[in-house]
Design a binder for these strands. Structure first.
Length: 432
RNA sequence: UCCGCGAUAGCUCAAUGGUAGAGCAUUCGGCUGUUAACCGAAGGGUUGCAAGUUCGAGUCUUGCUCGCGGAGCCA
């Protein structure tokens, strides 16, 4: 097979005659010269078609090229500061592969509703392309981070028999003769089993929430990465979380400069995401709200505006720990120094992006755990295997979950989660 | 579930209760360096649906449908 050449590789081919394939991003013509902007998924390239340099037939055929028509172009690569990307192709031949008729997304402004209806095409746009390239880099950074630190990737089931934490509304369906089953809302309980087997594991996959949340911060299907570590306490958990976030952000800053520029992201705010992050207790956070004249009663969970007020006090992610145990999940260990609070931590992203990490040290005492399950009115029979983890060599352990799309949104500086995933699923939309 | 906003050409939007318009896209013509190119021309409409008020409704009223974002819940 002849080696394929992509626009991103053109620096290695200056002066050579190459053949490229792709789609027409835009076209300008001036009588005897035509400028075809080729898009091949790896970049953009201006192809110059002078009337004398190609056959008359080829020159005229360029008129048929409409936006997003696919074609093949052959020509000599040259450096050209006037062109986007710094290179240009002097075309000697153009072959049309498929003519596109009336591409819906024109190079003008469009409304969000129209764009999301055409998500399958919107993905070709520069901004969406940049967001999803950054998403890809974030995923790689996540995997590199854990792989380099001795974690084992541990895939939990998507189909579960019980409502894991007993709080969220889940997608329910019939599972053969076994009754109702649910789509997972978290792989965490299974990750705990993994941590007892491998020491340090992480799960990374889709999770589902059937709540009728109708905001720019919610999807019904989203991706979550959940590390779980044996012999970690809450402080160890927070140490890992801040190292993790720093690694992700700094990796993107180093490797995705062009994409961040396309998104017009103010990177000075991302450059500040360096350890250590501020760590404040829930009590301290409540004080901050009161100092800002916000009414808030101890024992409640923070709303979106509360989170923004708290995170605005800092220039990097803030870790809020030791929440009232009543508003947290049954498996979270209570603080031995204060039974009213759980050894939990939420990480709030800067710039109003809200909670991106939720974690805790887990309850490792069998009797306490059974008591919590009863207090939450959860069916203990579903949790016997989970209780076995405490019966057979229980150890202190901790973990957290990071919402991928919220992290992508924050780093990209976009205002809606739906742009952070190729095909978003929301309560009133499951197409395309 | 509650609160608020919206629906006009393929798209983005205009239009004091009085002839439904512009830009982009499409088609045709012009231009040898364009950068959302530009210049000229053409085609393109059951104004979300239903009823009401009025001499006259895109505009006012009521109901419905669909969508948007906020609350709650959460990542």
């Amino acid at each position: 097979m002849k080696p394929k050449i992509y626009i991103s590789d053109l620096g290695k081919h200056v002066g050579e005659e190459v053949t490229l394939k792709g789609w027409l991003f835009n076209k300008r013509s001036s009588g005897k010269v035509k400028f075809l902007i080729l898009r091949d998924g790896s970049g953009y390239l201006q192809c110059v078609v002078f009337k004398g340099n190609v056959s008359e037939e080829v020159f005229n055929s360029c008129e048929e090229l409409t936006q997003e028509s696919s074609f093949e172009v052959t020509g000599k690569v040259k450096e050209e500061p006037r062109a986007v990307g710094g290179f240009e192709l002097d075309a000697v031949d153009v072959k049309i592969i498929s003519v596109c008729s009336e591409y819906p997304i024109t190079p003008k402004e469009h409304g969000i509703e129209f764009l999301i209806d055409n998500r399958h095409l919107w993905l070709r746009s520069k901004k969406q392309h940049a967001i999803l390239k950054i998403r890809h880099r974030i995923i790689k950074a996540i995997r590199d981070f854990f792989d380099e630190r001795g974690f084992t990737l541990f895939d939990p089931p998507i189909i579960t028999p019980n409502a894991c934490e007993g709080t969220s509304t889940l997608f329910e369906f019939d599972y053969f003769d076994l009754g109702k089953a649910y789509l997972t809302q978290s792989g965490q309980l299974y990750a705990e089993a993994g941590a007892m087997a491998f020491g340090k594991v992480y799960t990374f996959g889709p999770t589902f929430r059937a709540e009728k949340s109708k905001t720019r911060r919610h999807l019904t299907e989203f991706w979550m990465v959940e590390p779980e570590m044996a012999f970690y306490d809450l402080d160890d958990d927070m140490d890992l979380a801040e190292e993790f976030l720093e690694y992700i952000v700094q990796t993107v800053l180093t490797n995705m400069k062009d994409e961040l520029a396309t998104l017009e992201r103010d990177t000075s705010k991302l450059e500040k995401v360096l350890r250590p992050f501020p760590r404040i207790s829930y009590d301290d956070a409540v004080k901050i709200l009161h100092e800002n004249n916000i009414e808030f009663a101890w024992g409640n969970d923070f709303g979106a505006t509360d989170e923004t007020t708290i995170s605005n006090q800092f220039d990097r992610p803030v870790m809020v720990h030791r929440y009232p145990s009543e508003i947290k999940a049954f498996y979270m260990k209570r603080d031995p120094l204060n039974e009213k609070v759980a050894l939990a931590v939420d990480v709030l992203a800067p710039e109003g992006y809200g909670e991106i990490i939720g974690g805790s040290q887990r309850e490792d005492n069998l009797d306490f755990l059974i008591q919590r399950i009863q207090e939450h009115n959860l069916p203990q029979s579903f949790f016997e295997w989970y209780l076995d983890l405490r019966r057979f060599g229980s150890v202190p352990h901790a973990g957290f979950g990071l919402g991928l799309e919220r992290t992508v949104s924050w780093i990209c500086g976009i205002d809606h989660l739906r742009e952070a995933i190729p095909f978003p699923r929301m309560i009133y939309r499951n197409t395309p």
